[in-house]
Design a protein around this nucleic acid. Structure first.
Length: 579
RNA sequence: CGGGGUGUGGCGCAGUCUGGUUAGCGUGCUUGCUUUGGGAGCAAGAUGUCGGAGGUUCGAAUCCUCUCACCCCGACCA
């Protein structure tokens, strides 16, 4: 492709709408333009990248035994009522009416449609296993679209659905998809990490997410992984092995108030009482603002976690369902406990007390006495105080042991580019998907659903591979493999050489972007860096006089002069080396 | 939806508080000349319903009311 014949509107400045590097580069390098919040035009370069991702997905899905179909984007509301998701999906489901006032939805996912599709004709065990997929535009009316293609409202997704006769067969189908996913992301140059996840609203028995690990702000998900084995899980789902579990006393002892002069922090009391922090339960006081009928009300609430844990305020806030949550100031603490900060405890506390599950399992632990310089030992939940709820309130168990080996858990950030769900019979039940088994007995088929965010994967690649000048596409996703630049566009020998090399490489099967613009060298070089094509060929007077041109990989700094006659071999060689 | 913010040539912004000629600047765009290996110089140009509607006023980008859009923080998700 000649630059002058396509449409690559690069920009010098960062548009103010973008926050994330990958988002900025997508706009600056002329890959996309925004139409509305979370809705984008894909320009020629982007369309090529989307095709690259799609083709990799397609090849791997096909070879994993899935077959491609295409289902409608606009769907009748009836099917969604039937599955119950007309109500459950909430406002994210975009609804509209046709001219006859019939209710429709813009497809955010296709479990309903595909189950309905097969329900009349997938009637025998002989027809399974079956796996069908599509690559299609989806629409989810996100509360807050963000970060360009990362969380768009309209986006391209590959969604696959498997049908099996029983759990065992389904597990096989699921494993096949997981393997295909690893191959897909590997081929995209991304090596996604597979993590255990919460099945959430999709329902079903198990699920995994595939994360591209990044250390930029683009990593919206926190995942916990083992430093030795490949255990990894979403923070919400992560389990761990306690390295130093608290001692469990055999007998339940009587409470006792003890003096702890000048010991307000866990470390100080721990030191003073000669007991490890995990025998303490911290009582943390918060002010929570709830929505009231007329005006909002602020109520104090207490959270209890083990002495060696950190509170996760977001988890607490979610549990409470309040509008605002903040640590109570000294005045509130004194008013509530009658003691200065550092001695709050649950016994006799006049507000709701929410405890972490770990606290529920402790015996004879230490809490604040609600009196200055005093703590109470041998406290036991239910006997000495009551809780209003038990819920996980602590931060990710970083530093704890891996549940599957003797490694340690660490936290890192990732971009979710794909997921796999075991759906069980949720949709076959609600949508009426039955078949006859070998014994002529009616059964519900076991389903799985498998998604890959195609457009998000593309942006995730940029988030992972870029420098301060622009994108560094992995060669498998790059819109073109090679870009050719004439340093002095006006000079005929260079133009001729450019044309010749462009034709030669194109005929040899390379995808080439020939920058034939009448621009100065600096502009073209900068644009080439910005756009991120893996291999750059530059044609300049000096080299050309010796019958040479220059090759440079985007991710390397070396410039290599190569004889005109060996362009094809050298280009092949360079591209082998590219990421 | 709650909180915060922004709308002014394609892009990035100033001007708004304190109303007052033809609404500026940088960049980009067009044309010409000179340049030409990492975003050239000079000259001449084109491009604005100042997000929209209504109002106040002799006069509104600027003040008031309503409204729309977009961005950021939170909950949700490929």
């Amino acid at each position: 492709m000649r630059w002058s014949k396509t449409y690559i509107p690069t920009m010098r400045d960062n548009p103010s709408e973008a926050e994330l590097v990958s988002h900025k580069f997508l706009l600056r390098a002329g890959y996309m333009r925004r139409l509305a919040a979370g809705v984008y035009n894909y320009l020629p370069l982007m369309q090529r990248v989307i095709n690259k991702v799609s083709n990799i997905v397609r090849e791997e899905m096909d070879s994993a035994g899935a077959v491609e179909i295409l289902m409608p984007f606009v769907q009748p509301a009836d099917l969604w009522r039937k599955s119950g998701r007309w109500n459950d999906y909430g406002k994210e489901l975009a609804r509209l009416k046709d001219r006859h006032d019939r209710e429709m939805v813009l497809g955010p996912t296709h479990e309903e449609i595909i189950t309905d599709l097969v329900s009349g004709e997938l009637k025998s065990y002989k027809q399974m296993p079956l796996n069908m997929y599509q690559i299609q535009t989806k629409f989810r009316d996100e509360i807050r679209p963000r970060f360009g293609l990362m969380r768009g409202r309209e986006f391209i997704m590959k969604d696959a659905y498997s049908f099996d006769i029983n759990e065992e067969a389904h597990q096989g189908a699921y494993d096949k998809m997981v393997a295909a996913y690893h191959r897909i992301f590997d081929r995209c140059g991304l090596s996604a990490k597979q993590v255990d996840s919460d099945s959430g609203a999709m329902g079903g028995s198990g699920s995994h997410e595939f994360m591209v690990m990044v250390d930029t702000d683009g990593g919206e998900c926190t995942i916990v992984s083992c430093d030795k084995c490949d255990y990894a899980a979403n923070v919400e789902k992560a389990v761990f092995r306690e390295l130093n579990p608290p001692v469990q006393d055999k007998e339940i002892k009587e409470t006792e108030e003890v003096d702890t002069p000048n010991a307000g922090t866990i470390e100080e009391i721990s030191e003073f009482l000669k007991m490890p922090p995990n025998r303490f339960a911290k009582t943390l006081l918060f002010n929570a603002e709830f929505k009231g009928k007329k005006k909002n009300v602020v109520k104090p609430v207490a959270a209890m976690i083990r002495g060696d844990r950190q509170i996760n305020e977001i988890k607490f806030k979610n549990y409470l369902g309040c509008l605002e949550l903040e640590m109570a100031g000294p005045e509130t603490v004194e008013k509530l406990t009658g003691a200065p900060v550092g001695f709050a405890g649950p016994i006799g506390l006049g507000c709701a007390i929410v405890v972490d599950p770990e606290v529920e399992n402790m015996t004879n632990f230490v809490v604040g006495a609600n009196k200055a310089d005093k703590h109470i030992i041998n406290v036991n939940l239910n006997r000495d105080f009551k809780t209003t709820g038990v819920v996980d309130l602590k931060n990710a168990p970083v530093g704890e042991g891996c549940p599957e080996c003797d490694g340690l858990l660490t936290a890192s950030r990732g971009i979710e580019v794909g997921n796999t769900f075991m759906l069980g019979t949720k949709y076959s039940k609600s949508m009426g998907g039955k078949f006859l088994d070998r014994n002529g007995k009616e059964q519900l088929y076991i389903m799985g659903s498998y998604g890959i965010g195609v457009t998000r994967t593309a942006q995730a690649a940029i988030e992972k591979f870029h420098d301060d000048k622009g994108i560094l596409w992995p060669k498998s996703l790059a819109p073109y493999q090679i870009t050719i630049i004439t340093m002095n566009a006006g000079k005929e020998p260079q133009q001729e050489a450019g044309e010749k090399i462009y034709n030669e490489l194109t005929e040899a099967g390379f995808e080439v972007l020939y920058d034939d613009r009448m621009e100065r060298a600096g502009i073209k070089l900068n644009d080439a860096d910005l756009v991120g094509i893996p291999l750059r060929i530059t044609i300049g007077d000096k080299s050309l006089a010796e019958g040479k041109i220059e090759l440079k990989l985007r991710n390397e700094s070396d410039l290599v002069r190569v004889d005109l006659s060996e362009i094809i071999e050298k280009s092949t060689e360079f591209l082998e080396r590219a990421i």
